[in-house]
Design a protein around this nucleic acid. Sequence first.
DNA 1: TATGAATGAGTGTTCATTCAT
DNA 2: TATGAATGAACACTCATTCAT
Lengths: 194, 194, 194, 194
Amino acid sequence: MAIKINPDKYDTKLPDILEAALKLFVEKGIEATTTKDIARAAKVAEGSLYRHFPSKEDLAWHLFSVNLDALSEALYGRVLAVRDTQERVRLYVHECFERYEADPTLLHFLVLAEHRELKRYRESRNHPGRVLEQVIQEGQAAGALRGGDPWVLFGIIFGSVHRLCVVRSWGLIGRPLTELADETVAVVWTAVRA
Amino acid sequence: MAIKINPDKYDTKLPDILEAALKLFVEKGIEATTTKDIARAAKVAEGSLYRHFPSKEDLAWHLFSVNLDALSEALYGRVLAVRDTQERVRLYVHECFERYEADPTLLHFLVLAEHRELKRYRESRNHPGRVLEQVIQEGQAAGALRGGDPWVLFGIIFGSVHRLCVVRSWGLIGRPLTELADETVAVVWTAVRA
Amino acid sequence: MAIKINPDKYDTKLPDILEAALKLFVEKGIEATTTKDIARAAKVAEGSLYRHFPSKEDLAWHLFSVNLDALSEALYGRVLAVRDTQERVRLYVHECFERYEADPTLLHFLVLAEHRELKRYRESRNHPGRVLEQVIQEGQAAGALRGGDPWVLFGIIFGSVHRLCVVRSWGLIGRPLTELADETVAVVWTAVRA
Amino acid sequence: MAIKINPDKYDTKLPDILEAALKLFVEKGIEATTTKDIARAAKVAEGSLYRHFPSKEDLAWHLFSVNLDALSEALYGRVLAVRDTQERVRLYVHECFERYEADPTLLHFLVLAEHRELKRYRESRNHPGRVLEQVIQEGQAAGALRGGDPWVLFGIIFGSVHRLCVVRSWGLIGRPLTELADETVAVVWTAVRA
DNA sequence: TATGAATGAGTGTTCATTCAT
DNA sequence: TATGAATGAACACTCATTCAT
């Protein structure tokens, strides 16, 4: 086993950078956040950012895509693991709200901002919305969800979850969304069930 | 009748500027749109923008606040003119969708614009969401809407409308939202009625 | 004799423009004064300035050269009209101070600012300083003034007059310079006489 | 001894910037000198100016205030160190002329700069004129200087020194002012002594 | 790997000047 | 002659990016 001298020497400052950038992007927006801001907040030199990302835009894209991928994966894994549509809807709402409360800043960044980044993402990846699209499609096919335009059902479910996150971010809802999850599921389910 | 020579001489180019700016703000975002972009698209000189607005930010703010005020006013006028809660919800959804289809670019700008720049609006003005807050409050008081946290109802109604606009903007819904309005109302109403 | 209809029709607004420009040039400097400023102060349209002067710089040059010419002429006429050197010095100082008090703004503009304009002027015209140069040259030749470098005498006389105008402009001298003229002459004369 | 590789790497370019700016400010005036001009003359990028000063105006103010402070300090130190009024006047003139010849461009900037931009200096700092005001006040009190309005004496002494600097700047005096200092003192002293 | 001074293209904004009326 | 909306070159300043150390 190799002896580690000065083990922190090459510990990357990447986590600091990501954290600082995320916070600033949420607070001020991506465009309005300067590389100087990020470097100062992460306590690294401005040039050091470029050890990790070729550009500021890539940093933002990394934050967005990696974390949205993770959210999508989690939703895929948990929601589609069960077959019952009502349970799927329940899990979807709960998973979203739990993740929101676990890291509001991150979810704010991912979900609230209809970032220009999203456009690029939507075309290439699995999106949390995709999970829901599949739930709706299969639920309608199975007769568990009401018929009609699936986008209407999508709008209700995704829209409710999204809007509650937004309103919570605005500080208008004082409780954790997790406490509203069951109620939200109940109401939404009333609307969309067959 | 007097002959008008070059009658447009002093017709202001304001409409051209507003239209060009709106389109670019939606396409690229406010920050990423340069005054040069706007001037070129509006076929005016860059300096001419400043005859109408003291800064680019003021132009964006004008576009946002004037039009959102108008939307809020319309919703106030139409929705609160009736007393029946179900009819209020119906009118709310219809009004939103009609306005969306009448000028999708404008509504895209207004509705997607959880722009940081325009955060201040929420704090200072009547927002389309306010109308709905009142409908919900009065509807719950009258026993027409289900009880529970009013924000859940808000999330369902506003979220559905908002999300359908977003999905339509993304080109995923091929039909006018007006054709989906009745169905949307039906589903939403199922969820929120007492 | 021609009948004059609407005699004010073509009354030029030149005096208003000159007065406004002079005031603003003194207050804010030539560069910092905009044509809009001048137009507003003179109550004419911005474009109207160009009926009278081909450029802002020409307006400044006009104000400078015409008035400095007039001052130089006056000094030439009054000062060199007498032969006695002491009387010449007395008249020089009195004339300068009288003119200063008659129109401090104008003199401030002409005399205080070592305008870039002055450089151009100095090379081409009679300058108030020239009068004094002649007085000194002739005074030394006549034995009325002390010998030595004539620029030292010039510095004393011109410098004293100039500096008293400056200090007066700064508001540090509360009395009209005309009241200080005799005393100034007496002191200066003590220094420069043979 | 360590070998220095590229020892100038982080030598700041501040002196180049200051020198270039000073020269251009004297030649063209502050307003007429562009940041591009300064950068080109100092052989730095335009942006580099802003590493040292937050604005062009601050650069000008720095150049003015730091150097005028230094001049004022020097005059305070040297002139007021002695008690004899005649000697004080002698030292004042000599110090000014020596400094002028040591760096004519700098003194030109300081001395001619009745810049509007720099008006605030007069109100807030020790000015070379202040030293002289004190010399005059104490000299009159001690009976070493003639009575009468002290501003007249100030005008003579300060005005002479100032004007000789100006005339020298204009290239009309071919010799160093230091060679004229004793003569200037002699003449001025004749005027102001009791 | 980390630094931060240096860069320079690009930004929002100003303003002297023009010209159709 | 007078107007003032329109122009666009030029300005001060910013900031993502580079690179010698």
